[in-house]
Write a protein that binds this DNA or RNA. Structure first.
Lengths: 204, 204
DNA sequence: CTCGATATGTTTACAGTGACAACATGATGG
DNA sequence: CCATCATGTTGTCACTGTAAACATATCGAG
């Protein structure tokens, strides 16, 4: 069964599935974990169905018992990415103590996440927002956006059009993120802070 | 077909004879044209080698006489996209009469291009800027960026840090563009003009 | 003009992919 | 205990990018 002659990918020797994921031990989560692991290793992430299945130690078509097709799998990975992004932003906001400084920190965290996990970030935003789960399952992206809107409201109370301001802020950091991971500009946290601060008047 | 744009494609090394018609008659250009046509039709652009070859009426492997591999083909398409973007921006700049209005128009043209040709725009910026043609063949992206820098210099003479301002402007429109074509926000020219104008102080 | 040389296009084939149908297996509940 | 169902496997199909071998058109030289 095993007889794995060449393990091409180094897995962080953890106890991911050693506990008992043979037959009914939550394969779906294992596959997603493997996908995230692969996305973390280099931007040119090859995540094929077969490779992913081999990482988990399962046959390729087994994945179809948990995802209707590859797109669904990628959607799941993308959603996880958005969730992580939202978590990092919330963390940055709290750490900076909210207000204008917190707002800036949120934006910088956004760009830093894109730089730290380029493949995951790109995947998360490239996925075509499919209509799904209308019964209020927050899709991870809304978390981040709501945080942004709240940030605008709390950090910039005097702004005239908060909607436009929020859009502006989002577009700015998203543009920086994309340009960085497409190698159009260099990653430079000081520079990013400078640009972000230029608009929302905080100190450099 | 329209007049042949002689600057549309770099001619391979070799004798400097004018692009002659051999068997098919400048297939390389035809393939690129077919690719662009396909990219213009819907965002979910399927550009496979076989499909592309069939469009031109040639067998699949014939493309390998003009491109080392598919990546090179996509690179050529991406470059053409950047060139068109630059042209549109220059046109917008002139039409608006330069200065601040021209600068704003340039930014709006950027976003509009992304909206009008989503697949081409995405392709153009997703391609990993590979080192190539060190003998000063402008890669199309530089044209756009130089235009931007020039715009900052001319339109915003009083700005303290033009480099940061240029980066800011680019990131803003690029972010708007990406968010629009990833369906994160709706395309709304008025809204775009509003956001762009919010930063570079012109009227709405 | 004839004759190679070279640039271009075709055929065939191969490894890899996502996906489906049929089959096997382990767990579960009446 | 056995039927049922969820899960995983084997085999296969259409499709993809790409390489090798073959075919042909165009051009320069004699």
């Amino acid at each position: 069964m095993m007889a794995n002659k060449d393990n091409s990918v180094n897995i962080k020797s953890g106890a991911a599935k050693a506990a008992g994921a043979y037959h009914h031990g939550d394969l779906r989560a294992a596959v997603i974990a493997a996908g995230l692991r692969r996305l973390e290793q280099g931007d040119g992430a090859e995540l094929g169905l077969r490779a992913l299945a081999r990482d988990v130690g399962v046959s390729a078509t087994a994945l179809y018992r948990h995802f209707p097709d590859k797109e669904a799998l990628l959607d799941a990975l993308a959603d996880e990415g958005l969730r992580r992004l939202g978590a990092l932003q919330a963390q940055a906001w709290l750490k900076a103590g909210g207000a204008v400084a917190g707002f800036k920190a949120t934006g910088i965290a956004y760009v830093r996440f894109a730089h730290d996990e380029p493949a995951l970030f790109r995947l998360s935003f490239t996925r075509q927002m499919s209509e799904r789960s209308p019964d209020g399952a927050s899709d991870g992206g809304e978390v981040a956006y709501n945080l942004l809107r709240a940030g605008v409201g709390e950090a910039l109370p005097g702004v005239e059009d908060p909607d436009t301001a929020a859009l502006h802020a989002w577009a700015l950091v998203h543009g920086l993120a994309m340009l960085i991971l497409d190698r159009r500009i260099e990653w430079d946290e000081v520079k990013v802070a400078e640009v972000v601060g230029l608009t929302f008047g905080g100190v450099g």
